[in-house]
């Protein structure tokens, strides 16, 4: 089954829309779903032109395609466990929150908290994402626990904050404090990052580009030969965060 949702023009296009109902499993029961636009509950068809093609008997047979102005549509794919969501443009905050299976493909940019506390499945973002990608909710002790997030552009601040499992791969550069409070999992950054991995206790972070302002509380362990993305690289290995009795590993490509 392929469900196509094309955003209708809205009188107040800046108003946020909360649309956690947009997950593949929900469309098995039809399209009579609701979303919130500001403080008004709306039927899905008030905000989207909906087309449904073909049958499905289980969520993994459902593909949802979002088109048009969806940059303010939040929480798409929240608690998704199977199937596929393809977003042709930008997507709002909290896309893929708590997702445990299936796949989300974002062809442009994603707003903040992409894949927040994700447990499984895969998110691919062809553009860039904002702050707190793969992070936890405020005050949570664990962020993403499983699955994969791959960003072909860059990310904002606090990418992979509280990362506890799974893999976050950012091909571009990150803002400040990626991998802060990391306690597991793998964070790979292709470009530049500032002050990575503060307070980390476990897990591995790999920086293939340059580190601005390495934190003073990481202990240098020497140079290792490592293979990343099929390339053999010499990498400086750091362990920390010593301020936190941490035993995380931070690998930085030599000479970058």
């Amino acid at each position: 089954m392929r469900v196509t949702l094309v955003a209708r023009p809205r009188a107040k296009p800046s108003l946020p829309v909360e649309a956690e109902s947009i997950i593949p499993q929900n469309f098995l029961r039809g399209t009579d779903l609701t979303v919130y636009e500001g403080n008004k509950e709306r039927r899905l068809e008030e905000l989207f032109f909906i087309t449904v093609e073909g049958p499905a008997v289980s969520p993994d047979q459902v593909e949802v395609v979002l088109m048009g102005a969806t940059g303010r549509v939040k929480r798409v794919g929240e608690y998704m466990n199977a199937g596929r969501i393809v977003i042709e443009g930008d997507i709002g905050m909290h896309c893929g929150n708590f997702m445990s299976g299936g796949e989300i493909v974002i062809k442009s940019n994603a707003d903040a908290w992409l894949g927040r506390e994700m447990r499984g499945g895969r998110i691919t973002c062809m553009g860039s994402t904002s702050h707190n990608c793969g992070a936890g909710y405020r005050g949570e002790k664990r962020g993403m626990r499983g699955g994969t997030i791959e960003i072909f552009g860059g990310a904002g601040d606090f990418a992979g904050e509280y990362l506890a499992g799974g893999e976050v791969r950012i091909h571009g550069s990150c803002g400040d404090m990626a991998g802060i409070e990391m306690r597991g999992g793998l964070l790979v950054i292709g470009g530049t990052v500032t002050r990575p991995c503060g307070n980390m206790t476990a897990g591995t972070a790999v920086v293939l580009g340059h580190v601005n302002r390495m934190l003073p509380t990481f202990q240098y362990q020497g140079v290792n030969d490592e293979v990343w993305d099929g390339k053999r690289l010499k990498m400086d290995v750091w362990e920390g965060d010593v301020a936190n009795r941490g035993k995380g590993r931070l690998l930085v490509a030599v000479g970058k």
């Binding site: 302002r213 934190l215 003073p216 509380t217 202990q219 965060d241 010593v242 301020a243 936190n244």
Partner: peptide, 23 residues
């Protein structure tokens, strides 16, 4: 400030060996 606070935490717990000459 973050770096200074981290360095102080490490020093207070007896790990000034990892801290460089200035932070």
């Amino acid at each position: 400030d973050y770096e200074i606070l981290s360095a102080l935490r490490a020093i207070v717990r007896g790990r000034e060996d990892v801290i460089s000459g200035a932070v």
